[in-house]
């Protein structure tokens, strides 16, 4: 495997790991499966692309995150204040975002940024002719990932962070405490979706194009990475689990890249991530059911033998 291929895998893995970190907050901490992730990722990409095309590469990051916050707010508001089921709220917002995203891109489903000034080209220019030039992309992505990790580490230690964790951990307790679950759910989803938007924005600028399908299947891919990380670090402290989340997305990318080397077609990515999610969730369940199945078989066999 060539080094540049590994580097690309690492870069793509790190960009999507920001979405994985977003799901760590909404899925692992708040215990809400946010199905608007796909649409929000694309939202970040399209908003980021439009702002970058207008000549503001740094502002594009902020704009994409704000768009994410807005989308998270709508999803959270629907499920806490409007009586929409949490999964349905995500699906509805996701569907709505499809139109919103095309509208943002001015009616097009593809925006080309080949000659556009982005955060990547900015740093590339700044480091030009220096020894670090070939790593400029990686540096941009690393800055973003490290920022998100540190933010989450400190955020989850604050009073509001603890309240968000309690909301996901024991709804019974929160219901009879002075924590307002409506507030924690909405804030949690806003923060998580800000990161999803950031992730989408970076992905579009990295690929030099934003298209309407950029986020399709993102929630499953990210969940697969998250659950891989969980395998090793489920009952550890928060910082370790954040690191585990990163490791999970890295392992996922690595496996995927290796599989591509063995001539697996690229379109298999989503099937693989679906299978991983199924295995990670059903595995523990099936394991707990195994003794019962074995016992049922034994009883049936004894019945036959005695007959």
């Amino acid at each position: 495997m060539s080094l540049s291929l590994l580097e690309t895998a690492l870069e793509l893995g790190l960009i999507s790991s920001i979405t994985v970190l977003a799901l760590f907050l909404s899925y692992s901490m708040l215990n809400v499966c946010d199905l608007s992730t796909d649409g929000c990722f694309t939202l970040g990409a399209s908003v980021g692309a439009i702002v970058a095309l207008a000549g503001h590469p740094y502002l594009s990051i902020v704009a994409a995150m704000c768009a994410g916050i807005l989308s998270g707010f709508v999803t959270g508001f629907l499920q806490t204040k409007m009586g929409v089921d949490s999964l349905l709220a995500g699906i509805v917002v996701n569907t709505g975002l499809y139109s919103v995203n095309i509208a943002i891109m001015g009616g097009a489903s593809l925006l080309n940024m080949n000659k556009t000034d982005t955060v990547f080209t900015r740093l590339d220019n700044a480091l030009s002719d220096g020894p670090m030039e070939e790593y400029s992309k990686l540096i941009v992505i690393l800055i973003a990932v490290v920022f998100v990790c540190i933010f989450q580490h400190f955020f989850l230690r604050t009073r509001i962070g603890l309240a968000i964790r309690a909301t996901g951990n024991n709804p019974d307790m929160v219901r009879s405490s002075s924590i307002n679950p409506v507030m924690t759910t909405i804030v949690g989803l806003c923060v998580a979706n800000a990161f999803t938007g950031l992730s989408g924005c970076l992905m579009a600028q990295y690929q030099k194009s934003a298209n309407i399908d950029i986020g399709t299947g993102m929630v499953t891919v990210a969940l697969a990475s998250l659950l891989i990380g969980n395998v090793f670090f489920l009952h550890k402290s928060i910082p370790v689990r954040i690191a585990g989340t990163l490791l999970g997305s890295f392992i996922f990318r690595l496996v995927y890249t290796v599989a591509l080397r063995f001539k697996m077609p690229a379109y298999m990515l989503k099937l693989i991530s679906s299978v991983i999610v199924i295995l990670a969730i059903s595995g523990p369940y099936l394991k707990s059911q195994m003794p019962l199945v074995i016992r049922a078989m034994k009883v049936r066999k004894e019945g036959r033998d005695n007959a």
Binding site: M173, S177, I179
Partner: peptide, 27 residues
């Protein structure tokens, strides 16, 4: 099991109960 969050530490549970400081403050 209804009054405490099992996945959080004793200290974190108490911090929620104490509820002192602003939302962005930590223990």
């Amino acid at each position: 099991l209804k009054g405490t969050a099992p996945g959080m530490t004793i200290e974190e549970n108490l911090a929620l109960a104490a509820g002192k400081g602003g939302w962005l403050s930590s223990i």
